[in-house]
């Protein structure tokens, strides 16, 4: 270890590994992972959400799985729960859409209207 900067660099990298274990009151993202969700392709959606959140170093976001959300025909479903305010439900998701949700909704705060259940079911 040659300098404090070197240590801080290692720390930056290492933090991503343990962030999951910290108390987190921020945004919760939930992916439907019942049989219906998994067979519709929820796993790649989940993985790209995680990858994107980690790449961007978003510390106040937790990603979780849940069981059947109830509208199996629209799976994979992703629900976003902000720390305050109403949840947003995205349907018929895939990896690319998941990345866009992170970039547009989570980072910039703009709900991606065309993926939401309200828009799709109009």
């Amino acid at each position: 270890m040659k300098s404090l900067e070197e240590l801080k660099k290692i720390r930056e990298e290492a933090i991503k590994n343990v962030n999951l274990r910290k108390e987190n009151d921020g945004i919760k993202i939930v992916v439907g992972m019942a049989t219906c969700g998994i067979s519709a392709g929820a796993r790649p959606v989940l993985m790209s959400l995680i990858e994107e959140v980690n790449k961007r170093g978003l510390e106040n976001v937790t990603i979780n799985q849940t069981g059947c959300i109830g509208i199996c025909r629209l799976e994979p479903i992703v629900e976003v729960y902000p720390s305050d305010g109403e949840k947003v439900t995205y349907v018929n998701m895939d990896s690319e859409k998941a990345k866009k949700v992170i970039a547009e909704h989570i980072v910039n705060g703009n709900v991606v209207e065309e993926y939401t259940i309200g828009y799709v079911e109009k």
Partner: peptide
């Protein structure tokens, strides 16, 4: 009960060795 004691990077992630760095520099 939070970190893996056999992995120094997890300790560093929890601000480990920052105090030593601060003290000596």
């Amino acid at each position: 009960g939070v970190i893996n004691p056999e992995d120094i990077t997890e300790y560093i992630a929890m601000d480990g060795y920052l105090a030593l760095g601060k003290a000596v520099t």
